[in-house]
């Protein structure tokens, strides 16, 4: 018997159906592969019940009461309970390949993640670059005057010669991880912490952006979300367009910098 290995695997698989059935659990249609086996499964179900003592096949009283409650609510017009429960968990829709995942985030989560991302905020270490201050839309956390005033010190982070136009140099101070970037002659310091969930941004010289490896946000060299246009709202659906991003994000933190004697300094406020 069972010389054919295919017999073995079919018998093993079908036994999983039987085991579930005989333990009064929910069998999976996955263990039944064709119409013939479905006939076998149905016969087994019938056999299983017919060979049980009669008093066991009544409904669980708790189930009867629960269903009574659901029906009362439905009868009273509560629409929520009218949605029929699926027999089995529905298969999840396949994720399109090559498309950036859409990020769903509530306003509350967004706020929280912004605060996390700007952990340096707590130490009062934020500032705006003096070079391009007029570009800022002045979000509350980027009020350079308030945040970086008081005592502090300048930390040298790069030599200007090391940052030709279109390039960026990574730096670390007591307050920041970031990049010194040269945006066509404008030198700025940008935090390398994504304002979405706090992942570390990577500089892409060919794109002239800072790209987040977690959810694909892209920030331009002014620190603004570059793929965060509202276009996706109009076209409906985020279809992998690099210029679109499903949510808007605050701009990157921009610490105050100065250039002296070919040396770039970043301001660190003292707590």
């Amino acid at each position: 018997m069972a010389d054919d290995p295919r017999d073995r695997s079919a018998a093993d698989r079908f036994d999983r159906y039987l085991e579930a059935l005989l333990s009064d659990g929910r069998p999976s249609p996955e263990d039944v592969t064709d119409g013939d086996e479905a006939e076998m499964a149905r016969l087994a179900a019938e056999l299983s019940v017919a060979t049980q003592p009669g008093e066991q096949v009544g409904p669980d009283p708790a189930f009867v009461e629960q269903l009574r409650l659901r029906m009362r609510q439905a009868d009273a017009g509560i629409d929520a309970v009218r949605v029929p429960l699926p027999l089995r968990p529905e298969a999840t829709a396949p994720t399109p390949v090559g498309v950036l995942g859409r990020v769903r985030i509530t306003r509350r989560q967004l706020l929280r993640s912004s605060l996390t991302a700007g952990a340096g905020l707590a130490a009062g270490l934020l500032g705006a670059s003096v070079l391009t201050r007029s570009d800022l839309r002045r979000p509350i956390w980027d009020d350079g005057n308030g945040l970086v005033s008081g005592t502090g010190y300048w930390t040298p982070v790069a030599r200007l010669a090391d940052v030709p136009p279109g390039s960026a140099v990574r730096f670390t101070t007591a307050a920041f991880d970031g990049y010194v970037v040269n945006d066509a002659g404008q030198v700025r310091a940008l935090s390398s912490v994504c304002t979405h969930m706090g992942c570390t941004l990577h500089f892409r010289p060919d794109w002239h952006d800072l790209r987040c490896p977690c959810h694909g946000a892209s920030f331009d060299l002014k620190g603004q979300l570059a793929n965060g246009t509202d276009r996706w709202k109009i076209t409906g659906g985020y279809l992998g367009d690099a210029r679109a991003y499903p949510i808007s994000l605050p701009p990157l933190v921009r610490p105050k910098i100065k250039v002296e004697n070919d040396q770039v300094f970043v301001w660190t406020a003292q707590v």
Binding site: R26, P27, A45, L67
Partner: peptide, 13 residues
């Protein structure tokens, strides 16, 4: 129950 043979499915139906 006599036709599906198990409690969870019988309750759902």
């Amino acid at each position: 129950y006599a036709r599906v043979g198990n409690r969870p499915d019988a309750e759902d139906l």
